[in-house]
Amino acid sequence: MTVFPSFIFQMISPTVFFVGVVVALSASLLGVFVVGRRMALISDALSHVALPGLAAGLLLGFDPFLGALAVLFFSVLIISSIERQGILSFETLVGIFFTAALAIGLLIIPEEHLLESLFGDIAKIGYLEILETALLGFLILFFIVFFFREFSKITFSSDLAWGEGLNVNRLNLAFLLLLALSVAMGIKIIGALLMGALIILPASAAKNAAGSLKGLTLLSIIFGLISVFVGLFLAGAFQLPPGPMVVMVSAAIFGLSLFVRKA
């Protein structure tokens, strides 16, 4: 433990470190497919959908995280089932849901909690949040690793995927649910609004720099981890809110990646 100066450990406690790793890993892995499928705004939109659930939790005195999770989960199920009727596109439905949810959330969320819900605060997390993050994180990581080939095939071409007998609709729904879970997981850490950024930015930067899917995945993970650690460190060092700092670092990496474009 002599690699890092000890003051870093004073600012980044082991629990924060652990939670940061889990969040960064799941977000950057999901990001590979989110960016690959050009659905970047959907993860952002989903983060707004979480707000009424958070608000309900804060108002009624149950865990806001569970509220967010429930609202996200049902929204994804409803959006998918309406989409299958084929009249409205997926993007349109997500657009409707997220603006409506944002409106409801802003109306009912107690004002003193608004900023924290939107931008999170990793410094304030307790053991319950750590446990929740760990459980969700491992669930997301397990599914992504287990279905990596399936998600890759669908991302590359859904024509090819169904030709191999994959149930593309069901896998798409599973993917959206994972995305919803990751958004819920990130709320406490970097906030509902900024979780979408942590999903999109590392993978986008990686896509600029990578020449293969393997490279894209590994780079996305590395960029995600760097974003979280450097962001938390800078936030601690300069007494700034951690969520925005993490996103700023991620955006800076993306900026640098533009100079090594391979695509």
Binding site: S152, D159, E164, K207, G211, L213, A263
Partner: peptide, 21 residues
Amino acid sequence: LGYVPQRLEFDRTFPLTVKEL
């Protein structure tokens, strides 16, 4: 079974290599 689709629609910017495919 092996299947070759009619017109493969795919994202040309997705950095999948032939080997990886």
